[in-house]
């Protein structure tokens, strides 16, 4: 199967690979997996105020999964938390020209964003109560 140029680019030069301190109060971590292909994806966001100032990811999976998460971190950086929640997998599919068999990779990236934000929100609401 041929990957699109954009997938190849993200695969060869993935943006924002790495980790943020998951114990930090303003870092949200999302780990999601696709059992059917064995992919696992970790996406982290660092939030200041209501803006995502940094994002990192680590993905073990196919080229499309790596590209989807790399693109996701690029897109959410600088966005408000609530704007980042609006990113859908369809936008990722379009940007990377993913074929139908790889759509689940984009779903994984969307889930990872949502899961990281949910973790961040959970942390900050816990902080408010304390």
């Amino acid at each position: 199967m041929a990957y699109s140029d954009k997938v190849v680019d993200h695969y060869n030069n993935p943006r924002n690979v790495g980790s943020l301190d998951k114990d930090s109060e303003n870092v949200g971590t999302g780990v999601v997996g696709a059992p059917e292909c064995g992919d696992v994806m970790k996406l982290q966001i660092e939030v200041e105020g209501d803006t995502i100032v940094d994002a990192k990811f680590k993905t073990f999976g196919c080229g499309s999964a790596i590209a989807s998460s790399s693109l996701a971190t690029e897109w959410i950086k600088g966005k408000k938390v609530d704007e980042a929640l609006e990113i859908t997998n369809t936008e990722i599919v379009e940007e990377l020209s993913l074929p139908p068999v790889k759509i689940h990779c984009s779903v994984l990236a969307e889930d990872a964003i949502k899961s990281a934000i949910a973790d961040y929100k959970q942390k900050s609401s816990d902080g408010d109560e304390a």
């Binding site: 059992p35 059917e36 696992v40 073990f60």
Partner: peptide, 24 residues
């Protein structure tokens, strides 16, 4: 089906991530 159960526990997925790093 296998793709319909995605809500694997976070702790397990973290574990998968850790092995994957070591294997990589």
């Amino acid at each position: 089906s296998e793709s319909e159960v995605k809500d694997m526990p976070q702790a397990f997925l973290m574990e998968v991530l850790e092995w994957s790093e070591v294997l990589d």
